[in-house]
Simulated assay, not measured.
Amino acid sequence: MKTQLIDLAKQRRSIYALGRNVTATPDDLTDLIKTNIKLAPTPFNNQTTRAVILFNQAHDRLWDIVHDALRKVVKDDDAFAKTAAKINGFKAAFGTVLFFTDTAVVKQFEGNFALYADNFRDWSEQAQGSAQYAVWTALAENGLGANLQHYNPLIDDQVRAAFDIPASWQLRAEMDFGSIEAPAGDKDFMADADRFKVFK
């Protein structure tokens, strides 16, 4: 059996110690990210996933938005100091991909395919997972680390205003990426017997 995809999957880890020691250009990384999202599967080929790719000041601005939004809800100074350190780690990365779902397309397909209407929102989430995994793995293949965050919906309004996001785009995740400054730790797996059933 060929294992190239498995080998790549092993490289795709949650890397939190990220930096800006990146040789690829923003244009090259943008092409990589866009191509992987376009090739990720979607139900009925409805292509509901959207992305905003941030570099330089735009990347910094996003994590400033996260910092300010969390400062309003984390009142304890000691607790916020830990939160701020975590956010500064994300900000230290080279860039961020904001993943969105275009809810207008979801609603359109709900109307056009009434038999499956109850499924399109779930299917759009599955499409998100496919796109995020594809981008994450492609970044890992190119020697870059990444991690996935979910500060939505806390930051949705501020992000929409800062980056001119259409009203129908719903923020689903934030993926910061950059050079790997420290590796991920060991990964534990639950027992196969608790996770899989095989019938032959």
Rank of each mutant, 00 (worst) to 15 (best):
residue 1 M to F: 09
residue 1 M to T: 12
residue 2 K to L: 12
residue 8 L to C: 10
residue 8 L to T: 12
residue 10 K to I: 10
residue 11 Q to W: 09
residue 12 R to Y: 10
residue 16 Y to G: 04
residue 17 A to I: 01
residue 19 G to S: 04
residue 19 G to N: 06
residue 20 R to T: 12
residue 22 V to W: 05
residue 22 V to A: 05
residue 25 T to N: 07
residue 26 P to C: 05
residue 27 D to E: 15
residue 28 D to Y: 10
residue 28 D to M: 12
residue 29 L to S: 05
residue 38 K to F: 12
residue 39 L to I: 13
residue 42 T to N: 11
residue 45 N to C: 10
residue 47 Q to T: 11
residue 48 T to M: 13
residue 49 T to F: 06
residue 51 A to S: 14
residue 53 I to H: 07
residue 54 L to C: 02
residue 56 N to Y: 09
residue 58 A to R: 14
residue 59 H to M: 02
residue 59 H to R: 00
residue 61 R to A: 11
residue 61 R to I: 04
residue 61 R to V: 04
residue 62 L to M: 02
residue 66 V to A: 00
residue 68 D to Y: 01
residue 69 A to Y: 00
residue 70 L to R: 00
residue 71 R to Q: 02
residue 71 R to M: 00
residue 74 V to Y: 00
residue 75 K to R: 07
residue 76 D to W: 05
residue 76 D to M: 01
residue 78 D to E: 14
residue 78 D to Q: 14
residue 80 F to H: 03
residue 80 F to G: 00
residue 82 K to H: 09
residue 82 K to F: 08
residue 82 K to Y: 08
residue 84 A to T: 00
residue 86 K to A: 00
residue 91 K to S: 03
residue 93 A to Q: 02
residue 95 G to F: 04
residue 96 T to V: 05
residue 97 V to N: 05
residue 97 V to C: 08
residue 100 F to Q: 10
residue 101 T to R: 15
residue 101 T to A: 13
residue 105 V to K: 15
residue 111 G to K: 14
residue 114 A to R: 13
residue 115 L to E: 14
residue 116 Y to M: 13
residue 117 A to Y: 03
residue 121 R to T: 15
residue 122 D to P: 11
residue 122 D to T: 14
residue 123 W to M: 10
residue 123 W to G: 05
residue 126 Q to N: 13
residue 127 A to D: 11
residue 130 S to C: 14
residue 130 S to K: 12
residue 131 A to Q: 06
residue 135 V to E: 07
residue 135 V to R: 09
residue 136 W to G: 04
residue 139 L to Y: 08
residue 141 E to D: 15
residue 142 N to H: 15
residue 143 G to P: 08
residue 143 G to I: 10
residue 143 G to F: 08
residue 145 G to L: 04
residue 145 G to T: 07
residue 145 G to Y: 02
residue 146 A to Y: 03
residue 147 N to D: 01
residue 147 N to L: 08
residue 147 N to M: 08
residue 149 Q to D: 07
residue 152 N to A: 13
residue 156 D to P: 05
residue 156 D to G: 07
residue 156 D to Y: 07
residue 157 D to M: 06
residue 159 V to T: 04
residue 161 A to N: 08
residue 161 A to E: 11
residue 163 F to L: 08
residue 163 F to N: 06
residue 170 Q to E: 14
residue 172 R to Q: 15
residue 178 G to L: 00
residue 179 S to P: 05
residue 181 E to G: 06
residue 181 E to N: 10
residue 182 A to W: 03
residue 182 A to M: 06
residue 183 P to N: 10
residue 187 K to H: 01
residue 187 K to S: 02
residue 188 D to N: 07
residue 189 F to D: 01
residue 190 M to V: 11
residue 191 A to H: 06
residue 191 A to P: 02
residue 196 F to K: 12
residue 197 K to S: 15
